[in-house]
Design a protein around this nucleic acid. Structure first.
Length: 487
RNA sequence: GGUCCUGUGGCCGAGAGGCUAGGCAAGGCUCUGCAAAAGCUUCUACAGCGGUUCGAAUCCGCUCGGGACCUCCA
């Protein structure tokens, strides 16, 4: 099963069988957030997508080292390589220390990802914790002749690099066009070429976040940190490098260039890129001002939403689309996901109560094979889910006595469904946080109502039901008994 | 302006030459004191035009929509 996993690789735009560099081990680096503001839902989608990839690799038995950085310095506004970085800017705005900004939004990021039930990475390095490594790398790139100093800053020489290497291998862009693109350049005297980017930036006097370097006080360029940290924790060559698609043309392109210029190796064997989350057909982004905060989504406190949706509904919603497709975010679609998730979860609950027969009228192995096949096709979660829904239908049919399942098949299906849905897809049952007292009180009330019902005192039973409904508690009678739902 | 991607039923979304995706919604049925829920089941599709092919949603061309990147972005 393991050897059948296929991954789409941005490097050659082909889907091919995944072969790790070292048998049974996988090194995976994913570009993390720049923590200068709240994580929005688009950010969350990327990390949920890589969470699925991480979980599935673990499920296949790989020992995975998953490194995801926190960018807490050096990320410039624009590519002008001048002025304040994002942290200093925000810090000024909010009148706090830059590291307070970093702290606040790092915590926010972790909280958001936890709500979406993503597993933490193995290592989560920060840019500020790896200044020395970045300086060392800059030195090497300088020594190798792919960078130059200009007014206390160090720039990567793209033109020189591209004469020897395929600079645009990831983006598949035409380098000549990029170089000749007559887009407006405002005050770029320091750089030789318009594509050149900063490895190290000289700090202005008012700049707070600054470090001592051979070239004076300054701070590192954004692209360098990922190169430095991935090399440090995963080696010069590792298996998977991931991130959002929007990182392809600049950030990842430059990362590859830096690694080649420094170590003479292409860092990752497989480059995986996730697609964007859109709102009404447009990319969700901070600059467009159409981003959703997860908290707004959970509470429903947003003009585009009718109501709030739980983190698991949103996670499920994301899984219903392939990670390389754009996913359009809208109220109706969330509503549909909420119902769909409920159906799947009900199926899993039902599975526990199923009675087995002497033989099975359908093949459990067949279901499992189809689900694995889908996941092996570049982590195709929508198809995997489709087959899990087929399984759900069969579970319900067994319950209705229209299909049969043997004892061994039943326990096989139980462990498979539970493991796959909870551990691989990372869904979890939503626990109502009403507490034990509410639960006990509800059981008392339901008991009274059931007693009235059995005496055919429907006036009383309906009265209880109506009163509860008024305070937002719904009573539902089913064959298995009466249960309630809050909200 | 340049480069590239994309257009699937009421909605979201898979598929990528012949074989039903799936979920939601809608209709029917079952269960039920009633209601709700739940379950089963049915239906509706491949932007338009032309071409290749025995056969196209899937390949090619054109037209018309939508989007991304070329600036920071997950």
């Amino acid at each position: 099963m393991q050897n059948e996993l296929k991954i789409y690789n941005t490097l050659n735009r082909e889907t091919s069988i995944f072969k790790p560099l070292h048998k049974d081990y996988v090194g995976m680096y994913v570009c993390g957030p720049t923590v200068y503001s709240n994580a929005h839902l688009g950010n969350a989608r990327t990390y949920v997508s890589f969470d699925i990839i991480y979980r599935y690799l673990l499920h296949l038995g790989y020992k995975v080292r998953y490194v995801r950085n926190i960018t807490d310095a050096g990320h410039l506004e624009g590519d002008r390589d001048e002025g304040d970085d994002k942290f200093a800017k925000k810090a000024k705005l909010e009148q706090v220390e830059p590291m307070e900004i970093v702290q606040r939004y790092t915590i926010d990021f972790h909280e958001v990802l936890q709500q979406f039930n993503t597993l933490p990475p193995s290592i989560e390095p920060t840019a500020t914790g790896h200044i020395i490594e970045q300086i060392e790398m800059t030195k090497k790139i300088l020594a190798n002749g792919y960078a130059y100093e200009s007014n206390g800053s160090i720039y990567f020489d793209v033109e020189k690099f591209s004469s020897e290497h395929h600079y645009t291998i990831l983006s598949n862009r035409n380098i000549e066009e990029l170089l000749n693109n007559t887009r407006e350049l405002d005050g770029q005297d320091e750089k030789k070429g318009r594509l050149d980017f900063a490895l190290w930036i000289k700090a202005k006097p008012e700049h707070i976040m600054r470090w001592q370097s051979p070239w004076g006080e300054g701070f590192p360029g954004w692209h360098l940190e990922c190169s430095a940290m991935s090399s440090k924790y995963l080696g010069n060559e590792f298996d998977i490098h991931g991130g959002g698609m929007d990182l392809i043309p600049t950030h990842h392109t430059n990362e590859i260039a830096q690694n080649l210029a420094c170590h003479h190796t292409q860092p990752a064997k497989y480059w995986i890129h996730t697609n964007m989350l859109t709102v009404n057909g447009q990319k969700m982004s901070k600059s467009l001002g159409n981003s959703f905060l997860p908290s707004e989504l959970f509470s429903g406190n947003h003009p585009l939403l009718d109501k709030g949706y739980s983190p698991m509904t949103v996670r499920f919603f994301m899984l219903q689309a392939h990670y390389r497709s754009t996913l359009d975010f809208r109220n109706d679609a969330l509503q549909a996901a909420e119902k769909g998730l409920e159906r799947l979860m009900n199926g899993i609950q039902m599975l526990e109560k199923l009675k087995s027969s002497d033989s099975s009228s359908f093949s459990v192995q067949d279901i499992k094979d189809k689900v694995y096949k889908a996941m092996n096709e570049d982590f195709n979660t929508p198809i995997a889910l489709a087959h899990l829904f087929d399984a759900t239908r069969l579970i319900n049919l067994v319950n209705d006595g229209k299909e049969q399942i043997s004892e061994t098949d039943l326990s096989d299906l139980q462990s498979f469904m539970n493991h796959f849905v909870f551990n691989v897809l990372g869904l979890k049952p939503e626990i109502s946080n009403t507490g034990m007292l509410t639960e006990e009180l509800m059981q008392v009330i339901i008991g009274i109502r059931s007693a009235a019902k059995s005496k055919k005192d429907f006036e009383t039973s309906d009265f209880i039901r109506d009163q509860l409904k008024n305070i937002g508690i719904e009573i539902k009678d089913s064959k298995e008994g009466t249960y309630y739902k809050i909200g």
